[in-house]
């Protein structure tokens, strides 16, 4: 009898926690990050052998396609060298024009490179745990990049670990712009490999292959971070194929662009006045 009572009590407690956490997601954040911090070193240690095995397999696979890949890369290199010349010319021109205009440059980005130690891979949540936290200067809202593509943003920060919410996640909403047409939209994850574009103006024409970059709206990310290419335009809206391949991640770069679009806990605690002041800044 006592057992049954305890069982029902625990069941109710789990349900209560679930609803409470839904009503106010920040209630359990500190507890979450404390536990994550404690397990981070264990996950860190375990992730290393897994990486080694993956490297060996990857190298064997690479050997098989080495010759073909070489050919492709040579062709690409040639093309890129042409682009480099073009970019150099444009950069010089840009600099002169900026000088003429008295343009104020953006704050230079700082970055922290972190190792991926946990991959929830859940059916409902797309997030990663990384082994850098507050002590390495990681802050909530920072952009997580891999190579040149946007991966997601830092959602929770512990002392020595942080959780990165991927752009695939259900809760991810990123203001983006289609590079060619300058049409703004919001990139919304839905747990699939191809996030959707929401609120795209009806008058714009979008075609597969269009580049999508961040728009900088909301002040969380700077404008122009590459996100992906338009993958399909169809019945269920416009879908994006992100540049970043999530399955093979080993390291991510957490970028500090000197922006503070997302309020952190301290602001939240100190009340609305400060956040208003911040917004008006």
């Amino acid at each position: 009898m006592a057992h049954r009572f305890a069982y029902v009590f625990l069941l109710a407690a789990a349900l209560g926690i679930l609803l409470l956490g839904r009503a106010d997601p920040l209630v359990f954040e500190r507890a979450r990050m404390t536990v994550t911090d404690v397990t981070a070193p264990v996950l860190d240690a375990l992730s290393r052998p897994a990486i080694t095995v993956s490297h060996v397999i990857g190298e064997m696979r690479e050997l098989a396609v080495l010759r073909d890949e070489n050919k492709v890369l040579r062709a690409q290199n040639e093309r890129l060298l042409q682009w480099q010349t073009a970019a150099r010319t444009l950069m010089a021109e840009n600099e002169q024009l900026r000088d003429l205009l008295g343009f104020v440059p953006d704050v230079e980005a700082q970055s922290v490179t972190a190792r991926v130690i946990g991959d929830s891979g859940g059916a409902f949540v797309r997030s990663l745990l990384v082994n850098s936290g507050k002590r390495d200067g990681v802050k909530k809202g920072q952009a997580a990049m891999v190579g040149h593509g946007l991966l997601g943003r830092v959602a929770e920060v512990g002392n020595r670990s942080a959780r990165v919410l991927l752009i695939h996640d259900l809760n991810s909403r990123i203001p983006v712009v289609i590079e060619s047409s300058r049409a703004r939209a919001v990139l919304a994850g839905d747990n699939s490999t191809t996030p959707r574009l929401l609120y795209l103006p009806l008058t714009t024409t979008v075609k597969p292959g269009d580049r999508v970059v961040t728009s900088g709206y909301g002040g969380v990310f700077p404008p122009g971070l590459p996100v992906g290419l338009v993958n399909s335009v169809g019945e269920d809206g416009v879908r994006i194929a992100p540049y970043v391949d999530v399955s093979q991640l080993e390291f991510v770069r957490l970028m500090d662009f000197g922006l503070d679009g997302i309020l952190d806990d301290a602001d939240r605690d100190s009340g609305a006045t400060q956040s208003r002041a911040r917004r008006s800044r």
Binding site: A14, L15, I17, L18, G21, F28, V35, T39, S120, F124
Partner: peptide, 25 residues
């Protein structure tokens, strides 16, 4: 026992980042 199952679930919630309490439930 059930309390242990509850704790295991909470740990899983924390590590996977799903809504707190889901796996416990």
């Amino acid at each position: 026992p059930a309390p242990v199952v509850f704790l295991v679930g909470l740990l899983q919630d924390i590590l996977t980042g799903v809504p707190f309490g889901l796996n416990a439930f």
